[in-house]
Lab assay of single mutants.
Amino acid sequence: TPAEQLLSKCPWKEYKSDSGKPYYYNSQTKESRWAKPKELEDLEGYQNTIV
């Protein structure tokens, strides 16, 4: 779907730490963070409005 294509192009991906806590990693900037990036939230919100 178009929304899945947008998400696949987003540099932010969700991973799980050893303790199972989700964290987010940007493959372009090599940045990681615990809080979900706004860019990823926006894309997921867009995906939910299409489905």
Results as ranks from 00 to 15, higher is better:
36 K>A: 04
23 Y>F: 09
21 K>Y: 02
26 N>R: 00
8 S>M: 03
25 Y>W: 05
25 Y>Q: 03
6 L>C: 05
9 K>S: 12
41 E>L: 08
32 S>W: 09
24 Y>S: 01
32 S>F: 13
35 A>L: 12
43 L>T: 10
23 Y>V: 10
49 T>N: 06
32 S>R: 14
9 K>H: 07
17 S>W: 00
22 P>F: 07
33 R>A: 08
7 L>A: 14
12 W>G: 13
40 L>K: 03
48 N>Q: 13
26 N>S: 00
33 R>D: 03
29 T>W: 00
46 Y>L: 11
25 Y>N: 01
45 G>A: 14
40 L>I: 07
39 E>V: 05
40 L>W: 01
29 T>F: 00
36 K>W: 03
24 Y>I: 01
30 K>Y: 07
49 T>K: 15
22 P>V: 12
8 S>P: 13
45 G>E: 14
14 E>Q: 06
13 K>F: 06
1 T>W: 00
50 I>T: 15
37 P>Y: 00
16 K>W: 10
5 Q>V: 07
32 S>P: 09
50 I>P: 12
43 L>R: 12
15 Y>A: 09
33 R>H: 14
17 S>M: 08
23 Y>G: 03
10 C>P: 01
18 D>A: 08
7 L>W: 14
29 T>M: 03
51 V>H: 15
17 S>G: 08
19 S>Y: 05
49 T>G: 13
14 E>G: 13
28 Q>E: 05
26 N>G: 00
45 G>Q: 09
47 Q>P: 09
37 P>V: 02
18 D>C: 06
19 S>I: 00
38 K>E: 09
3 A>F: 13
43 L>C: 08
15 Y>C: 03
45 G>L: 12
39 E>D: 11
34 W>F: 09
30 K>D: 03
18 D>K: 08
22 P>R: 06
25 Y>E: 06
11 P>I: 12
1 T>F: 15
2 P>D: 15
25 Y>T: 04
28 Q>Y: 07
27 S>Q: 03
3 A>E: 14
27 S>P: 00
9 K>F: 07
39 E>W: 01
10 C>R: 04
29 T>Y: 01
37 P>N: 01
28 Q>F: 06
39 E>H: 03
31 E>Y: 01
27 S>L: 03
1 T>K: 01
4 E>R: 10
29 T>P: 00
21 K>D: 06
41 E>S: 11
21 K>R: 12
14 E>K: 04
8 S>R: 11
36 K>F: 03
31 E>K: 03
51 V>D: 15
10 C>Q: 15
7 L>R: 14
19 S>C: 08
44 E>L: 07
47 Q>I: 08
13 K>Q: 14
47 Q>Y: 13
4 E>L: 07
40 L>T: 07
19 S>A: 08
32 S>I: 13
4 E>A: 05
20 G>L: 01
32 S>E: 07
40 L>Q: 03
5 Q>A: 13
29 T>R: 01
24 Y>E: 02
16 K>Q: 14
18 D>H: 09
33 R>N: 13
12 W>N: 04
4 E>K: 02
6 L>R: 15
2 P>G: 15
24 Y>K: 05
7 L>V: 08
14 E>F: 05
23 Y>R: 03
43 L>Y: 14
42 D>M: 10
18 D>F: 07
21 K>M: 07
17 S>I: 03
36 K>Q: 04
40 L>Y: 08
22 P>Q: 10
38 K>R: 10
15 Y>M: 15
11 P>G: 09
47 Q>W: 04
3 A>M: 15
49 T>F: 04
2 P>N: 15
17 S>P: 04
2 P>W: 09
18 D>N: 10
50 I>W: 08
1 T>N: 11
42 D>N: 14
37 P>H: 00
28 Q>A: 09
11 P>D: 01
46 Y>C: 10
6 L>M: 15
16 K>V: 12
39 E>P: 04
16 K>A: 12
16 K>N: 14
46 Y>E: 13
4 E>P: 10
38 K>L: 05
51 V>S: 04
44 E>Y: 05
8 S>K: 02
31 E>P: 00
9 K>W: 02
28 Q>G: 08
2 P>M: 15
51 V>F: 15
34 W>D: 10
1 T>I: 10
34 W>I: 13
2 P>H: 05
25 Y>M: 11
46 Y>W: 12
47 Q>R: 05
29 T>D: 02
10 C>G: 14
